[in-house]
Amino acid sequence: MADTTVAVVEGVVAGFVMVAGDEVEQVYVGTSFRGGGIAGVLLGEAERLVAAGGHTDAWLAVVPGNARARRFYERSGWTDAGAFDYEAEHEGGAILVPCRRYTKRVAG
């Protein structure tokens, strides 16, 4: 089960982050809210949740072509740990998505 944190700005959902165990599963910020620091706050909360769950390291998956997200994670202290195939659930079963694995020490 995932923990979800939602960012609300003036009554409007601006973004959210989902954490499952040591994985930051989703980080999303609406287009009109990008560049305002919300992503950093959400990512910080995700890191806190991973650490609170007893994990020392967090990880997340990013598709190689998402250069904006990759730069953001790197600026936020995350490290590109290499290529891997992420198993994504789909109605017909799981599919493998080529990704980059990013990691960060969040405790200890």
Rank of each mutant, 00 (worst) to 15 (best):
A2M: 12
D3P: 02
D3W: 12
T4Y: 06
T5V: 15
T5C: 06
T5I: 15
V6A: 04
V6N: 07
V6T: 15
A7F: 12
A7K: 08
V8M: 14
V8G: 15
E10A: 15
G11C: 14
G11V: 12
G11I: 14
G11H: 14
V12P: 08
V12I: 14
V13Q: 12
V13E: 15
V13S: 10
V13G: 08
A14K: 10
F16W: 15
F16M: 12
F16N: 12
F16I: 14
V17S: 02
M18N: 10
M18A: 13
V19L: 02
V19G: 02
A20K: 06
A20G: 03
G21M: 02
D22K: 08
E23V: 10
E23C: 05
V27G: 00
V27P: 00
V27Y: 00
Y28M: 03
G30W: 01
T31I: 04
T31G: 07
T31N: 06
S32L: 10
F33T: 00
F33D: 04
R34F: 04
G35V: 08
G36S: 03
G36C: 04
G36Y: 01
G36R: 07
G36N: 01
G37K: 05
G37L: 09
G37C: 07
G37T: 05
I38H: 08
A39N: 07
A39F: 02
G40M: 07
G40S: 07
V41I: 12
L42C: 05
L43G: 03
L43Y: 03
L43K: 01
G44W: 04
G44I: 10
G44E: 04
E45H: 01
A46N: 08
R48Y: 09
R48T: 14
R48E: 13
R48P: 07
L49C: 03
L49W: 02
L49N: 00
V50W: 12
V50Y: 11
V50M: 09
A51C: 12
A51L: 10
A51I: 03
A52P: 07
A52T: 08
G53P: 09
G53I: 04
G54S: 13
T56Y: 10
D57G: 00
D57Q: 10
D57V: 02
D57I: 02
A58Q: 09
W59T: 02
W59M: 15
L60N: 06
